[in-house]
Design a protein around this nucleic acid. Structure first.
Length: 550
RNA sequence: UGGCCCAUGGUGUAACUGGCAACACGUCUGAUUUUGGUUCAGAAGAGUCUAGGUUCGAGCCCUAGUGGGCCAACCA
């Protein structure tokens, strides 16, 4: 691992070997603030920021805010929070909109050099003249418009003298290029929309291709890394750079890697926002969403996300990674840090018939066997307890390690008990289990009996002192393993991806603050979603690995 | 009737730029365990899309084919 370099790092090393100065390396993460960042962005963030660490190079956070109709400040703020939460620090925070004036001047320069012109056709006409991937495009009738006229109209466009759609500025490249993007791409369009940063100052906005490479150039980004679908843009990226006034500065280099895809989820902001619009999820940070904010709310540690994307690697191959790989890194982290606690969700009563009425005793429990520094706690034990319904069967085969009539099981942190009989309701459902306990088997008492092995251990909670908790349980949002490929996304939605259940918990948990992560023993990992006015709710992060074949 | 990119166990990523295909997840054993968790030990599973070629030698290089992805927004 230590010596391994992914292909991006190899490109950088090659550049360094060819004489590129190490202290001129500079990277950037350039999101458009038109939605929340998702796990796919974590890959790009981690790639760039880790490169920054490795080469001791600056990494800018740049908002690619060239389309005011989709962008807003809330998204900007959330993106900043996400990156901080992941633990990365950007060196400069930049905005493409900071460069609007420079971009505008350079656009004039291109017109003057006969490299751009104003096209006054409707967008449909321009589109139809583009041709197709297999047939060349045709020149616009405005392609040879005198540059003075283009300059005049372009200036008037900025002054707001022309309506939306009446003119665009186009680069003059090659209408029969094999690369569709080189067929005189649009550089500017008229948009009478307020921008979240520049307000009403501008009514013309640069397109992505015109803004992005030039922003990289202004910031002197050495390696501009993006996902594979931008590969065809590379020609244009480089063409624009070569049209700028010569300044004896480094030209940034665009390189592309495969985006991250995961099974049973989608990674496109457009489709993600569709889920919100259709009220399939509550918001961008719904715990079922693959967004950073959603995963955070779900209880995924930031470290897990980073470990996961690092292991997923950087390559150029299309991929769909198993969601279980992410869950592995989530459990790995949570196992180390989470205090353990006993919570019963589908409760039945357990009565210890040979335990004194009205007696309560305090037992000691280790908070986290993986981390001694988390100490111990007290739990209350009595004659009347709750256990999990699925932990009792009247009879069962020997593969069932839990409680059956006549068999022994240990109550975690307490005593060994033996089920004697059970009480059923008129429907034949078990509502109460009666058992006896072995007083000498008390946990931690150091007696011979306390060390006795029994084949099962189950969790429990004292009825009287337990507190009520609410738990949100989640399942995957899609039925389809590859929802991205589904033609009808909304039809492959899992209709029961969220369930609200209630549980009974030992008291220890009541002190946990919002955001605290915990393991409900034998159940899984949970995060406190709310703890106010005596009401506690949790989000289930992920279940424990379960090796029991039912 | 185009151009560009890609192709390695179930999944993802490697293979010191040509030298007997490795790591992680997952799966399966076994041990430990007061969580059917954790931990530990071990196993199975690909001969690298196909066909040619170069070479003493090819997963790596070349050619063709096949399969997949991307490209015709005044989105990014």
């Amino acid at each position: 691992m230590s010596n391994y370099k992914n292909f991006i790092e190899q490109i950088i090393e090659d550049d360094l070997n060819k004489g590129y100065k190490r202290d001129e390396l500079c990277f950037r993460f350039p999101p458009e603030p038109n939605g929340y960042l998702h796990i796919g962005h974590v890959k790009a963030i981690t790639l760039n920021f880790e490169l920054g660490k490795k080469y001791n190079a600056p990494v800018n956070l740049r908002f690619d805010d060239t389309n005011p109709v989709k962008e807003n400040t809330h998204f900007v703020e959330e993106i900043k929070n996400n990156i901080k939460w992941l633990g990365y620090e950007w060196s400069k925070i930049c905005y493409a909109s900071d460069y609007f004036e420079q971009l505008y001047k350079w656009a004039h320069y291109l017109i003057l050099n006969d490299k751009a012109y104003i096209d006054s056709q409707a967008s449909e006409e321009i589109a139809s003249q583009k041709g197709t991937p297999t047939s060349p495009g045709t020149n616009s009738p405005f392609r040879n418009r005198p540059k003075e006229e283009s300059i005049r109209i372009f200036t008037e466009m900025r002054e707001g003298k022309h309506i939306e759609g009446s003119h665009v500025l186009r680069a003059k490249i090659k209408m029969d290029s094999q690369n569709m993007l080189m067929r005189d791409p649009v550089m500017y369009r008229i948009l009478f929309k307020d921008h979240h940063r520049t307000g009403s100052k501008w009514c013309i906005y640069p397109m992505y291709d015109w803004a992005h490479g030039e922003s990289d150039y202004i910031e002197q980004i050495s390696h501009s890394l993006c996902t594979l679908e931008f590969k065809p843009h590379r020609d244009l990226y480089e063409w624009f750079l070569h049209q700028l006034p010569k300044e004896n500065k480094n030209l940034p280099k665009q390189r592309e890697f495969a985006r991250l895809n995961m099974s049973y989820t989608i990674m496109s902001k457009r489709k993600l926002s569709l889920l919100i619009e259709n009220k399939i999820v509550s918001s961008w940070d719904d715990p079922r969403m693959p967004t950073i904010s959603g995963m955070r709310k779900r209880g995924y540690p930031s470290k897990s996300l980073i470990n996961f994307v690092k292991k997923a690697g950087i390559a150029k191959r299309e991929n769909i990674i198993d969601f279980s790989l992410l869950e592995f890194y989530v459990r790995e982290e949570l196992n180390k840090i989470c205090p353990r606690v006993m919570v019963v969700t589908d409760a039945i009563k357990l009565v210890i018939i040979n335990y004194p009425d009205g007696k309560y005793e305090s037992l000691e429990a280790i908070n986290n066997p993986e981390d001694e520094s988390q100490g111990k706690r007290e739990i209350i034990f009595s004659k009347h307890l709750y256990i999990e319904r699925e932990d009792f069967r009247e009879t069962a085969n020997r593969k069932f390690f839990r409680l059956t009539i006549g068999k022994e099981v240990r109550l975690k942190n307490a005593y060994i008990i033996k089920a004697e009989n059970c009480i059923k309701n008129e429907k034949g459902e078990v509502i109460e289990v009666h058992c006896t306990y072995d007083p000498k088997s008390k946990s931690g008492s150091n007696s011979e009996e306390s060390k006795r092995k029994v084949k099962g251990t189950i969790h429990w909670v004292d009825i009287n002192s337990s507190i009520d908790v609410k738990i949100n349980e989640f399942d995957r949002l899609f039925l389809n393993e590859k929802p991205e490929e589904s033609h009808d996304l909304l039809n492959s939605i899992n209709s029961v991806s969220k369930k609200l259940i209630v549980g009974k918990s030992e008291q220890f948990i009541s002190s946990f603050k919002k955001g605290a992560k915990v393991q409900f023993q034998r159940k899984g990992y949970y995060i406190v979603d709310n703890n106010q006015n005596g009401s506690m709710s949790f989000n289930k992060t992920v279940g424990l690995r379960d090796g029991w074949k039912k």
